[in-house]
Amino acid sequence: MFDAAMTQTIVLTLRLAGLTTVLLLLLGTPLAWWLAHGRSFGKDVVSTLVSLPIVLPPTVLGFYLLIAMGPNGPFAAILGRPLSFTFWGLVVGSVVYSLPFVVNPIRNAFEAMGPRPMEVAATLRASPLNAFFTVALPLASPGLLTGAILGFAHTVGEFGVVLMIGGGIPGRTKVLSVQIFDYVETLDWGKAHLLAGGMLVFSFAVILSMTVIERRLTGRRA
């Protein structure tokens, strides 16, 4: 059913989304923790920055990333070579683009938890780090799961950013959404239907399973 080009694109897309999700959980969880505790103007600014990709058109983000990843941008200055048109460039772009979809649910979970569980853990002589891993993270697991699923799905579905910084190189930067666009443009509607229909089913399954899992997890404790 799928030809070699399609399989390559699907594998690349899943690899990109998987890696992005792992990085987002590693980066996003501490960030969400910090944002969930205490209020200051600085936190409001950071929280706004995190949420910006929700409202910014992907072309705006893609345009700035293209400039930033180009030979005269900061990435090239740090890494010694430009990041545009590379798989890692897409990873960086996807992390920025999907950040709010991971950070916000985790932050909400931490906030919903309240200070009480951590205080109780402290009276039981748990170190803050210990309490974070044994108390806070398990309590926030529905938020972590929602964040992971949303981050993964959102990265699979991204188009504008990868279009602008990717360059459509098969096996390196040509992801599903770009491939679908190509099929539609070349009037190869059979293949477009196959991939687009697959995405539709995938997205439906993601949101449905998220709803079910979230209800189970929260229901168990309620």
Binding site: L66, I67, G70, P71, P82, L163, G168
Partner: peptide
């Protein structure tokens, strides 16, 4: 590039 404009943009930005 998806179109010749995007191709031009890739070169114009030095990427």
């Amino acid at each position: 590039g998806k179109s010749i404009s995007q191709t031009h943009q890739f070169v114009a930005t030095g990427n």
